[in-house]
């Protein structure tokens, strides 16, 4: 063959191709799960409008296509998903896709900020802890991380609000921006940043603990390997050994876990966004659950699973950059 594709591009291409069946499977599963719940959109709409006679509900059902056999509804929904049509929110009277997409940026901002914070802090603290293995610092950090790990999110969130907003009055307790705030562009950025601090830090706390523990044990394992001894044997300094030779290898499990936990973090954002009044997907889940807005819930599930997959794809690519062996598998 005269023309060959670089291994890294091949690797990326393979990964992207693997996404499509996964998205379809997730959408199908969502549909089945939600169709198991009692009641349908016709019941909800009529109940929201103060009740309706059986005939009216039946007519509504027909007009929404809900009287068709399940299998037909399934294929029409899947067809919609593939053409980016997630149906209508009957409660809010707008296309689900528009509704969901309007909430994505806020959630992404919160998630990316808190996970980046957590990964960065977790990695650095983990390295520090591992190089001082068994020292007082190591033990104190272990205890703190255990405390963080076992503190319930909602309690931590409330305590943060009580302390930083109510008590100190330093930071706003909720929302993404000051309502009615009239700022220049930079002023708006600063405003959002200030609003972001509490929810992002609260969410990051738990993950800092997780990544720190993982990085520490991963480092301890790597620091005992032959190539670390070999690096020492050629006179590399302890600093270089820890932060370059060992950390680069120890990072892989941490980055992989971070990828797996994107889904977990999205789940956690329901709570954090609700407590902090952050107008993202998580709060939309909460609202839609209360409103029994099935279509919107399905839409959120599909969009968030695509988000999770895209992020884990990025993580795969990062792993491929970190470890050249992965690309060649």
């Amino acid at each position: 063959m005269a023309f060959s594709i670089p291994p890294f591009l091949q690797f990326m291409f393979r990964r992207v191709l693997q996404i499509i069946p996964v998205v379809i499977a997730i959408a199908a599963l969502n549909f089945l799960l939600l169709s198991l719940a009692p009641g349908d959109a016709a019941d909800v709409i009529s109940a929201n409008n103060g009740g309706a006679s059986a005939e009216e509900v039946q007519a509504l059902r027909e007009s929404l296509g809900l009287d068709r056999p399940m299998i037909v509804q399934f294929f029409s929904y899947m067809g919609g998903v593939l053409t980016l049509d997630l149906g209508q929110s009957y409660v809010r009277g707008m296309p689900v896709l528009d509704l969901v997409m309007s909430r994505v940026p806020a959630t992404l901002l919160l998630m990316v900020t808190s996970l980046a914070l957590a990964v960065l802090a977790g990695i650095l603290l983990g390295i520090l802890s591992s190089t001082r293995y068994g020292s007082l610092l190591d033990r104190v950090m272990s205890i703190i991380s255990l405390l963080l790990y076992s503190t319930p999110h909602f309690w931590l969130a409330l305590m943060m609000i009580v302390f930083f907003s109510v008590h100190l009055g330093l930071l706003p307790s909720g929302n993404i921006a000051t309502i009615g705030g009239d700022f220049s562009f930079l002023g708006r950025v600063w405003d959002v940043f200030v609003h972001l601090i509490l929810p992002a830090v609260t969410m990051a706390m738990f993950y800092i603990a997780v990544y720190m523990r993982l990085m520490r044990s991963s480092m301890l394992e790597v620091l005992d390997l032959d190539y670390i001894t070999a690096a020492r044997a050629r006179g590399a300094s302890e600093k270089k050994i820890a932060y370059s030779h060992a950390a680069r290898n120890a990072l892989l499990p941490v980055v992989t876990l971070a990828g797996v936990q994107i889904g977990h973090a999205l789940g956690g954002s329901v709570l954090i966004e609700t407590v902090f009044g952050w107008p993202g997907l998580g709060r939309l889940v909460y609202e839609s659950l209360l409103e029994r807005d099935t279509n919107t819930l399905m839409g959120i599930l599909v969009v968030s699973s695509v988000l999770v997959i895209v992020v884990s794809l990025c993580i795969d690519l990062v792993c491929g950059l970190l470890d050249p062996r992965i690309v060649h598998k």
């Binding site: 032959d226 190539y227 070999a230 020492r232 050629r234 006179g235 680069r248 290898n249 470890d323």
Partner: peptide, 26 residues
Amino acid sequence: RKLARMRGPDVGMIFQDPSTSLNPVF
């Protein structure tokens, strides 16, 4: 620190298993 300065110029070392003595990501 002092020992690290001797490793290389004074004392070099090679190991039993070359498949584990090189850092796989460098």
